[in-house]
């Protein structure tokens, strides 16, 4: 029994939950934070899948650069999604 399998299931469930939250959230900043948390769960998954190279690429991109660029966008445009 590989210890990583349990954590894989846990983190993929976390990713699923926070994807849902990010999609339904109306406040865009909160949605960005939720997507950052989802990305971190995926970072952990990738780490447990033994892909350190991918972690080093994916982490800056998904946890750092996407939220940065999106917050730049949100800061200059609309803050809330209207239903």
């Amino acid at each position: 029994m590989d210890f990583s399998l349990v954590l894989l299931a846990l983190f993929s469930a976390v990713g699923l939950t926070f994807t849902y939250l990010a999609v339904v959230e109306k406040d865009l900043v909160k949605a960005v934070i939720f997507s950052a948390i989802q990305s971190t769960a995926y970072v952990a998954i990738l780490y447990l899948l033994r892909a350190p190279d991918i972690v080093l690429v994916y982490l800056p991109v998904a946890v750092g650069l996407y939220p940065a660029a999106l917050l730049f966008l949100i800061g200059k445009t609309e803050k809330v999604e209207e239903e």
Partner: peptide, 8 residues
């Protein structure tokens, strides 16, 4: 509907 949300 929001383009930002679509990109996320």
């Amino acid at each position: 509907p929001s383009v930002t949300k679509k990109i996320i």
